[in-house]
């Protein structure tokens, strides 16, 4: 059973001593809350835990930027 996207992001923020009270539409990466290395970790989690294949040319990296867009991404793949 995979974790909810919200808890994945909250865990990543807590690991980096960042405020974890994040709203669904708050920018995670463009706001500088998490950096591109954290993005690689998130991508690997999405592939490993949620079974997503993001190599498709249609994939737009900005979809990783908010919890709502991440949930939509995971929901579409389910």
């Amino acid at each position: 059973m995979s974790r909810a996207i919200q808890s994945v992001i909250v865990d990543m923020l807590q690991e980096r001593d960042k405020p974890a009270d994040i709203a669904p539409n708050d920018a995670i990466f463009t706001s500088g809350l998490l950096d591109s290395l954290a993005a690689t970790e998130l991508i690997m989690t999405l592939e490993g835990e949620f079974g997503l294949d993001l190599a498709d040319a249609d994939f737009d990296i900005s979809q990783l930027d908010t919890i709502s867009s991440l949930e939509a991404l995971v929901g579409k793949a389910a």
Binding site: D35, S36, L37, A39, T40, I43, E47, A55, F59, I61
Partner: peptide, 29 residues
């Protein structure tokens, strides 16, 4: 890596957006 993030953020972003992510998403998974 943190220095690059702090020194010239938008050049680092350019390299990450156009080279890092496309390679990371496709190769040696």
């Amino acid at each position: 890596a943190d220095f690059w993030n702090r020194y010239f953020y938008y050049f680092k972003e350019l390299l990450v957006d156009f080279f890092f992510y496309p390679a990371f998403l496709r190769y040696f998974k």
